[in-house]
Amino acid sequence: MNKFLRSIFLVDLFQGLWVTFRNQNPKYIYTEQYPGERPKVAERYRGAPRLNINPDNGETLCIACNLCALACPETLIVVGSERNEQTRRKDLTTFTYDLSRCMFCGLCEDACPVDALELTQDFELAAYTRDGAIWDRQMLEEGPRPTRYKF
């Protein structure tokens, strides 16, 4: 009998509707208004790469050891270097990073012995051309330049 009444008055359906109704409370809004409101990504976020420079003298930290290029599963990093006869060390000449093939696994970052290569918190990586996704040394050293939108 009870079951019959419950089915007549659609108790099960109203129970579900009540859940939906409870969730109308504006404090449950989760949507981020993306370009206007930038999401705050985690500190460890693996996003756009950056080649760190020494803040004091503007020289690159990279010692051109090529370890990142060897660590990368996709072999997308190409490190160009030149032997400096005075210091008897290798100097970095070029550094290209093909973002279009990168899967942001972080292995290159882990491999770098001097923390020169770092995956940063920038996540806006779209480019208009395929070539635009291949970053050279200059772009990597400048670091992310996120677009700010005004609303």
Binding site: T20, N23, Y30, Y45, R46, F104
Partner: peptide, 29 residues
């Protein structure tokens, strides 16, 4: 249709933990 919005809301919390821990949300490595 309704449950998908709620489940994604809670899944987001899990993904935030992943993001804080290892820096990626989906393909975490």
């Amino acid at each position: 249709i309704t449950p998908v919005f709620y489940t994604f809301r809670e899944r987001e919390e899990v993904l935030k933990i992943f993001e804080n821990y290892c820096g990626a949300r989906l393909t975490t490595h």
